[in-house]
Design a protein around this nucleic acid. Structure first.
Ligand SMILES: [Mn+2]
Ligand SMILES: [Mn+2]
Ligand SMILES: [Zn+2]
Ligand SMILES: [Zn+2]
Lengths: 148, 148
DNA sequence: TATTAAATGAGAATAATTTTCAATTAATCC
DNA sequence: GGATTAATTGAAAATTATTCTCATTTAATA
């Protein structure tokens, strides 16, 4: 019994995993599925819950291991909430940024980089070399604006 | 015995606290002191250690309480490391951003906003309202560039 | 289908954070 | 300076989050 359908995100993940000699386990693919289906950022617990719904019992450690690995592979992005918590979003490797709704944790990504034409040189004092940046926008999504 | 000297950060903190009807306790002022003396981001544990060096035994819960409160008051900023950890930096309420050295956790702040002239409208689809942004630059500080 | 290195699950072990409550203290008023 | 009082602290317990270990399972490969 082979699956006759496979979403883009799933095949992308499998490809990345194969390239690195890593296995495409059911658990890992379930994490991809849960994440790419979600409109909002998911916590570790929510992802674990989702995977358990799909597969039955699944070790929480596996979820931790998978998410850390996916983050290294650029498959997921870990975002930060003002309250200190974290949420995960699927992210296909490209350089994208995220808008996060602080009310419902909804997330939308966009590829335009807000720091696009910022002159890093102006800020690289004392020899500091900027290698990367992390940008996250906060606000309210359409629904939560109305509801407010 | 009154202190005959008080740094700007300390008086700033005391002012903010008074305005909100909060007490300027020795512990809170020690946290301000530790933070503004530091060239690098400090973890909760490091802050706790520093405060203990200054005051003798101090409850860890107080450090947590203080940092959370300071963050709400805009007195400190909590930054995120790629490895998942967090570091705190003193921050005087103004809108600043931080460059973080991933090697030594050194931090430099700058006021120019990388997203200065970004057109948020272009990204405010489906009624999303951007209220705030979080930007953090990663790289290596001068010393760590040389050492590498 | 057999082989095998990689991955998982269960639970123990750590680490991080929050809660509770009696004791202490900073601010205020005399 | 001393009394008053609400805010704050410390200590320990309670939660919650994360990592580790190791015996068992499984995906990939031939
Ligand atoms: Mn974080
Ligand atoms: Mn800015
Ligand atoms: Zn929302
Ligand atoms: Zn450095």
């Amino acid at each position: 019994m082979t699956k006759d359908f496979e979403c883009m995100q799933e095949s992308y993940a499998k490809e990345v995993l194969r390239e690195k000699g890593l296995k495409s386990t059911t658990q890992r693919l379930a994490v991809v599925h849960i994440l790419h289906m979600s409109e909002k950022l998911l916590s570790i617990g929510e992802i674990h819950g989702g995977v358990k719904d799909m597969l039955g019992n699944t070790g929480l450690a596996t979820i931790y291991r998978t998410l850390e690995m996916f983050e290294d592979l650029g498959i997921v992005k870990r975002l930060h909430f003002p309250d200190g918590g974290h949420g995960y979003a699927f992210s296909q490797g490209e350089h994208v940024h995220h808008m996060v709704c602080v009310d419902c944790r909804g997330v939308f990504d966009f590829s335009e980089c807000p720091a696009e034409n910022f002159d890093y040189a102006s800020v690289e004092k004392q020899g500091f070399r900027v290698k990367d940046h992390f940008i996250q926008l906060f606000g309210q999504c359409g629904k939560c604006v109305e509801a407010a």
